[in-house]
Write a protein that binds this DNA or RNA. Structure first.
Lengths: 275, 275
DNA sequence: CGAGGAATTGAGTAGGTTCAAGGCCGGTGG
DNA sequence: CCACCGGCCTTGAACCTACTCAATTCCTCG
């Protein structure tokens, strides 16, 4: 386990598996669990920037994991305007249950060169059934995802443009740090200002001005798709965020028990799962 | 089963169990399932308007079901402003999994005289383990809830005040119709204009003006906490909503199979669960 | 009848949008 | 190598939606 932790935090993410890194935050995984996850991510596929992975209205055939790069869920309005719903970073397990839906209510596209591993339904079921710890971690990460959706509602409903931007940038950096994809407070951000605007519910023009304000105030640097947070203190103050927001990431001993219980009920004389 | 359907749709909701009505949309429930659900809702508790059910920062002890009235999740900003995240109507099963969290990131309060049945952790687990169909329906309704969160993000990010209001009112009426709590296009709406504003991400003053605009245009009636949609066509046009939005509510045969499979794996020679 | 919360109205302001034009690349073809 | 092209970023100016502040009226309830 320590070995994996080490691999995850070393380097700029090229090394560790972000999915493993993410799930380890939530539940202690056995070596067997880790191997399965890594194996699952092996069959990754490359996508050009701006490629649609899932399209609104279509029937999703499989779940998928982002292994590298960046993607986003979005919705197009009848008049052509766009709202980006969430950003997907490496380690995000998408549409875990969604593959049973008959039609997507939104699309997913890559926002830079991105690698994605598709996980078919069969595999997902086996994964959850045979690896309760992974199930627990996935459940937990679904909770976190929901929390992020709520946070977004608060941001769009009650924060100023500056607040939204500050919040968004902080969140993105934190998330990437959490899966070992960022040293310091810098990340790669393959987003145009229009993308940013569509995320924040603003105009690209106004986003531009706010962005410049941030640069002038030396809060951030953003050039050539490289974002650096220069003054996190002040950024947090602007975003008005509760500092312990993602505190979900503590050890949920109760949750583990819950899932272990499920497992016990499920396969009475269950075989040992770890080698 | 037909009997229950009948009870649900008759009258103004005082008759059928809204939870049953809601879950029946998603999965066919056995009579045994229905009995269990009804029994579970029997131990309901009454709350005055504006009572906090769950408070941000606290550790949730149980899940709960709204059996009558209305409630809402909300978040307070450091400066005292409020954002209402979602509205909870009868039949909503809240924090189904949340009871494992160590701290809520938002609060829940009633918005009128409301009745709520608390469901302790023990019961939830048994419910899901012994009644796969209920599990399936709950899972499905969680999907729907997520879809509503996304819809909200789109609304706050990309719709005008009129659009938001129109959308919100339509959604609320539809949801209540779906659980048999509304005849026609009228519902009880125990919301102050400030509540509305905090839901829509607006000011109460501006909400007031938009509301008056709607009345002037004979789109709605709203007095003494009674809301009537007078021109749904036009309201939908204003809200710019995709008409088939909640189309989730079709029969998910695949989902049923999925859960039935889970059940089969779980308890090989399982006892009959229904009397 | 008085009190307090909610709804309503007005006037001034601000944050963000719209429209439009120009500048800065990075890529492509001659 | 240069010229051209298409995104993207940047800037200005006018405009408008929604906010702020403040006062008045309306309701409901004790």
């Amino acid at each position: 386990m320590w070995l994996h932790r080490a691999r995850v935090t070393r380097g700029n993410g090229r090394a560790g598996n972000p999915l493993v890194a993410k799930l380890m935050q939530f539940a202690p995984l056995s070596d067997g669990d880790v191997v399965v996850l890594e194996e699952m991510c092996r069959r990754e596929e490359r996508f050009q920037p701006g490629t649609n992975i899932v399209v609104e209205g279509e029937t999703p055939r499989a779940a998928f994991v982002i292994t590298r790069g960046l993607a986003h869920r979005y919705r197009l309005m009848p008049d052509g305007r766009r709202q980006i719903l969430t950003i997907l970073i490496p380690g995000d397990f998408c549409d875990l249950h969604g593959f049973l839906l008959k039609a997507m209510d939104h699309s997913v596209a890559t926002s830079g060169p991105t690698r994605i591993a598709a996980i078919d339904r069969e595999t997902v079921m086996k994964l959850v059934l045979n690896h309760p710890r992974i199930g627990a971690a996935l459940w937990w990460s679904a909770m976190q995802e929901q929390a992020m959706l709520r946070e977004r509602i608060v941001a769009l409903g009650r924060r100023s443009a500056r607040g939204r931007l500050a919040y968004f940038l902080c969140e993105l950096v934190w998330r990437q740090r959490a899966v070992g994809m960022a040293e310091d407070h810098a990340i790669r951000l393959p987003f145009t200002q229009t993308d940013l605007a569509d995320t924040l519910g603003l105009t690209s023009v106004h986003t531009n001005r706010v962005l410049q304000g941030f640069r002038r105030d030396e809060l951030i640097t953003l050039e050539r798709q490289r974002l650096i947070l220069r003054d996190i203190e002040r950024l947090q103050a602007i975003s008005g965020l509760t500092p312990d927001y993602l505190k979900l990431s503590s050890t949920p001993s109760e949750v583990l028990r819950y899932f272990d219980d499920l497992e016990r009920d499920r396969a009475p004389p269950s075989l040992p799962e770890d080698p």
